[in-house]
C-alpha cells in the first residue's frame, strides 16, 4: 500500500513530497466493472485517459500482485489527484474547525486526507486504506517537524523544504504510523 504526502504552501506549491510504501496489504475491493480493461487505442492521447482514469494503476495491481514502486502509479496522476483534492479541502476547511480533515475526498482508488496548519500550509496525504488514527498521529508528527523547520529564519512559508533532517524524520514517522 502506498502513501503520497504533499506539503503545500499557501499558494499551493509543493514544498515537500514523499512517497511511502507501507507493508500493509492493499484492501482489494476492485469492482468487477474495472476488470478486463480493454486496450482500445494506441494514440498518445489515449494514454492520458488511461492514466487519469486510474486504469494503469488498476492493471498494475492485478498483474504484478505486489505493487511496483513508482512504476504503474503515474506520479503526474497522483499529483493531479492531490491538486484536485484541494477543491474539497478548501471547502471543508471553512466548515470544519479541526485541523485534521480525515478522508476528505476520494478519487479513483485514492482517499485524500488533509491537515491544515494555522498558517494555511496544507499536508495532503493520498492513501488507499482506512487508517484514521495512524494518519492523525502521522500528521501531528509531521506538523511538529514542520514547525521546527519553520523556525529556521531562512525558511518562509513559500520556501521548498530541503532539510535532510526533516526528510528522514518524516520518513521515520511514516514507517511508524502508516
Amino acid at each position: 500500500m502506498s502513501h503520497h504526502l504533499f506539503v503545500l504552501s499557501p499558494s499551493d506549491t509543493p514544498l515537500y513530497s514523499l512517497t511511502h510504501q507501507s507493508a500493509k496489504p492493499v484492501p482489494s475491493v476492485t469492482s468487477p466493472l474495472a476488470s478486463n480493461l480493454p486496450t482500445w487505442s494506441t494514440s498518445a492521447f489515449a494514454g492520458t485517459l488511461t492514466a487519469l482514469s486510474g486504469a494503469s494503476s488498476a492493471t498494475q495491481h492485478t498483474s504484478g500482485g505486489a505493487v511496483r514502486v513508482g512504476g504503474g502509479q503515474d506520479r503526474h496522476v497522483i499529483q493531479m489527484i492531490a491538486n484536485a483534492g484541494l477543491d474539497v479541502i478548501e471547502e471543508v476547511m471553512h466548515r470544519e474547525p479541526t485541523m485534521y480533515l480525515k478522508s476528505v475526498d476520494k478519487f479513483n482508488e485514492w482517499t485524500v486526507s488533509a491537515f491544515i496548519t494555522p498558517g494555511n500550509t496544507k499536508f495532503v496525504l493520498l492513501h488507499e486504506g482506512k487508517n484514521d488514527e495512524g494518519i492523525r498521529a502521522f500528521f501531528m508528527e509531521v506538523w511538529e517537524l514542520y514547525v521546527k523547520t519553520m523556525l529556521n529564519p531562512f525558511q518562509t512559508a513559500h520556501t521548498v523544504i530541503r532539510s535532510g533532517v526533516f526528510d528522514s524524520r518524516v520518513r521515520a514517522s511514516a514507517r511508524k504510523h502508516l
Binding site: S31, L33, A34, L37, P38, W40, L49, T50, S53, G54, A55, A58, T59, D105, K106, F107, N108, E109
Partner: peptide, 11 residues
C-alpha cells in the same frame, strides 16, 4: 459524483 470515476470508464 466521484464514484463515477474509475478505470471502468475505459469500457
Amino acid at each position: 459524483l466521484t464514484q463515477i470515476h474509475g478505470p471502468w470508464l475505459l469500457h
